[in-house]
């Protein structure tokens, strides 16, 4: 089946209530990837990421976890000479297919990075940015979307009286929640979180984790984190990667109490590798 056309996709997302829908799972098949001059970054990854749940990807630095995450919305395309093979299905669509409309894909698969990156615009305009590009013009509609997104990320009560002040004046924790609001304002189906709390203080971190818990009913969430306790707290499933390979994938409860692989055991208990 060909990838959905961008307009159809935007239309579909506008008329679909986020509460009623079921987000898709992701299926990774024989995914390998190499960077120029760096050898293999990902080696034959096969993975079924469950829908409407939080999957954490953990592993030591350089294990390929961020690279894997960036495959899901084709962010690696920006790296010259990066080559990949295999398939990643989001629902019925192979993300890696040449015909995939990458812009439409990134609306469907939203991403939040380690450092909050709000635009140098007002809080309101940050959240309304995506919907405006999607063709929504009426102020009342935009107001509604902005309020709902800010409420979903538990930021509304803190900023509702200053929606038109600059986003960069918010604290780092608030900025990260704003970025999350901006991401979900266009109603993606999958959320990719790349170390979303690593630049935040403990309280802001807990707020982000609480949000992840709330959002997982509406989105399929994949989080890359260095913080193993965070992975244990927020995720339903955990993938442990090492050396570009998927070592073990299982329910988080099992990974953190009785993993099958010795390498997983050594990593999560903090033993010498």
């Amino acid at each position: 089946m060909p990838y959905m056309q961008r307009d159809a996709l935007i239309q579909a997302s506008q008329f679909q209530s986020t509460a009623a829908r079921t987000p898709p799972g992701l299926v990774v098949q024989q995914l390998s990837l190499s960077y120029p001059g760096n050898g293999s970054a990902l080696v034959d990854i096969n993975l079924d990421i469950p829908a409407g749940a939080v999957t954490a990807v953990i592993g030591p630095s350089g294990c390929g976890k961020s690279t894997l995450l960036r495959c899901f919305n084709r962010m690696n395309d920006t790296i010259e000479g990066c080559r990949y093979s295999g398939a990643i299905y989001v629902g019925d669509n192979n993300v890696l297919a040449a015909a995939t409309d990458v812009t439409a894909l990134r609306r469907r698969v939203g991403m939040v990075f380690q450092r909050p990156n709000p635009f140098a615009k007002s809080i309101y305009d940050n959240v309304a940015y995506g919907p405006r590009i999607g063709g929504i013009r009426r102020k009342r509609d935009l107001d509604e979307i902005v309020e709902r997104a800010l409420r979903d990320v538990a930021l509304w009560d803190e900023v509702s009286d200053r929606l038109h002040t600059g986003a960069l004046r918010l604290s780092l924790g608030q900025q990260q929640r704003l970025v999350l609001a901006r991401t979900i304002a266009i109603e993606p189906e999958v959320l990719l979180l790349d170390e979303p709390a690593s630049s935040l203080d403990p309280i802001s971190t807990l707020k982000i984790e609480e949000l992840i818990y709330e959002l997982k009913h509406t989105y399929t969430i994949i989080i890359v984190t260095h913080n193993m306790q965070q992975a244990a707290r927020v995720s339903d499933w955990t993938a442990f990667m090492n050396g570009g390979k998927l070592v073990e994938f299982d329910e988080t409860d099992r990974i953190f109490t009785n993993p099958v692989e010795r390498a997983t055991e050594d990593y999560i208990t903090g033993r010498y590798g």
């Binding site: 099958v260 010795r262 055991e265 208990t269 903090g270």
Partner: peptide, 14 residues
């Protein structure tokens, strides 16, 4: 048994 007898990175934890 698959228990690891390697040492923790934290000597204090050991």
């Amino acid at each position: 048994e698959k228990l690891s007898y390697k040492q923790h990175i934290s000597a204090q934890f050991n």
